[in-house]
Nucleic acid binder design. Structure first.
Lengths: 236, 236
DNA sequence: CAGTGGTCTAGACCACCGA
DNA sequence: CGGTGGTCTAGACCACTGG
């Protein structure tokens, strides 16, 4: 691994990571300055700077202008959680994705929805309820409200061919998204559609997306706890 | 925002993001080449390169050497999920953190643990069970096994003063970690300690960490579904 | 003040892609 | 082949930190 032709900045990164994961440099310890490393590796400072900048982005070191670079307090392990379109997620696993359309209808914003969408109560919204199957097994119940101002054609979409996520990303360019993941219980109707028992635990993600001036969409995604999990890896 | 003194590479990034989020450039469209942007902004190519490189890391664009840069298929919304030390997480919210030590004991690896730790069944491990309270309310039950080879002093730690996460990061430098988040039910004893009803849904995270040659630790973290969630934001 | 990192330049060579 | 991005250099000026 250290033998193959490796860009200079990668070698610097690998060196620093080796010192840390071997315990030679510990959290809070100072890392040699850019000019020191520049001389040690006989490379230009820009190259050292790139290496250290990337390590800072990865959370491996902390840099303070004027002060220096120190090994990060690794009490923060950060990884990337990818929120993906369910169709891609399933097909990438090599499985078949199918959708059952349970509801496609106009709706009116109640007080809670009005707050989420930042509109007046009673404003017209679109509402869809879809069930996503992975190899015929129910894996996600998607209950979604969409702002007509952001995606006027939403109710006309053929949801057997296009997922809401995919359609919205295409027609309401994303500017912001926020999500929350928690454990909850399925309601009676949710349980029936997901073919689980009422009272079975579910992983519930609520997600809202902003497109330009509008809150475009608010979705509640319910997954059977036994058939779904979020996974990730962090590698120093 | 565009008015303040902004580094040149940030201006380039902002420009590209504006084109995308306004819908002018759509997923799959080509982005001007580095030399084109260099001339447009009257800056050096290194600076353009930095901007585009960062956008690629953020997942906003996709670059292929020799081919060019295109607007990424945004079907992948990626955000950062920070796995933090619970003590920091709680104190940062301005609350008090306390720990109840329920078990600190040696244990022997059964078949499942042996597989996780990549050791022979029957190998000696350390076992702790801790309950974490946020302002006196139970928020996480931490059931953890630790490899003595990676942290020989583990059983001697005062867990009222130091969290296992913090101790392990200090004494068994982290090289890799992986996690899984799912919904589950509390066992009878878990429910009793968390002061919830049996059958209440819980967010369960299992996490294993690798330190150098050893699998250092395997933990099951159970959170009452009603009192805990993971949250995140993605901003273009 | 000297030392640090943050940014930037104007070149350069290379590997790769598509025509 | 020309154009693309990937990497690298040897300088430079700046803002910030610490003593």
């Amino acid at each position: 691994m250290t033998e193959t032709r490796m860009p200079a900045y990668e070698q610097v990164k690998a060196f620093v990571k080796r010192q840390i994961s071997s315990g030679t440099w510990r959290a809070g310890n100072a890392v040699p300055s850019e000019s020191a490393l520049q001389q040690q590796f006989c490379i230009s400072r820009m190259t050292v700077n790139r290496a250290m900048k990337e390590l800072a982005v990865e959370g491996v070191v902390t840099r303070v202008q004027g002060s220096g670079t120190v090994v990060a307090q690794l009490h923060r392990i950060s990884t990337t959680l990818a929120l993906r379109d369910i169709h891609e997620e399933i097909t990438e696993r090599g499985h078949r994705h199918a959708t059952r359309v349970l509801a496609v209808e106009p709706a009116k914003a109640d007080a809670a929805l009005a707050q989420v969408f930042k509109v007046r109560a009673g404003t017209r919204l679109f509402h869809t309820v879809l069930l996503h199957l992975e190899d015929e097994v129910a894996i996600q119940l998607e209950d979604r409200y969409v702002n007509p101002a952001a995606a006027p054609g939403y109710l006309g979409v053929n949801f057997n061919a296009t997922t809401p996520t995919s359609y919205l990303l295409e027609h309401a360019p994303l500017t912001k998204a926020s999500y929350s993941i928690e454990a909850g219980l399925a309601s009676m109707s949710e349980a029936r559609h997901l073919r689980i028992k009422r009272g079975d635990p579910c992983l519930v993600m609520t997600r809202s997306t902003v497109s330009g001036p509008h809150v475009a969409s608010f979705a509640r995604l319910v997954h059977p706890g036994m058939r779904y999990s979020f996974n990730g890896t962090f590698q120093l």
